[in-house]
Amino acid sequence: MPLITVTYSSVRNEPSLKAEIASAVSDLTARILRKDPKVTAVIVKSVDAADWFAGGKSLAEQSLASFWLDVHVSEGTNTKDEKAAYLAALFQRMGELLGPLHEESYAHIDEVKGDAYGFGGLTQERRYIAGQLEVAPRKAAA
Rank of each mutant, 00 (worst) to 15 (best):
14 E>Y: 01
14 E>L: 08
14 E>S: 15
17 L>P: 07
19 A>D: 11
21 I>P: 00
28 L>E: 07
28 L>I: 04
30 A>Y: 10
31 R>Y: 01
32 I>A: 06
34 R>K: 15
36 D>L: 07
38 K>Q: 14
39 V>W: 01
39 V>F: 06
40 T>M: 08
44 V>W: 04
47 V>M: 13
49 A>R: 15
49 A>H: 09
51 D>R: 14
52 W>M: 13
52 W>N: 13
53 F>L: 11
54 A>L: 06
55 G>I: 10
56 G>W: 10
58 S>I: 03
59 L>I: 02
60 A>D: 13
65 A>C: 03
70 D>H: 07
72 H>D: 11
82 E>V: 00
85 A>M: 07
86 Y>F: 14
86 Y>D: 04
89 A>S: 14
90 L>M: 09
91 F>S: 12
93 R>Y: 00
95 G>S: 07
95 G>Q: 05
95 G>E: 06
96 E>R: 04
97 L>I: 05
97 L>Q: 05
97 L>R: 03
98 L>T: 10
98 L>G: 02
100 P>E: 15
103 E>Y: 06
107 A>R: 01
107 A>S: 12
110 D>H: 15
113 K>V: 11
114 G>D: 10
116 A>T: 14
116 A>E: 12
120 G>L: 04
123 T>Y: 05
123 T>A: 02
127 R>N: 02
133 L>R: 09
136 A>G: 06
136 A>D: 03
137 P>V: 05
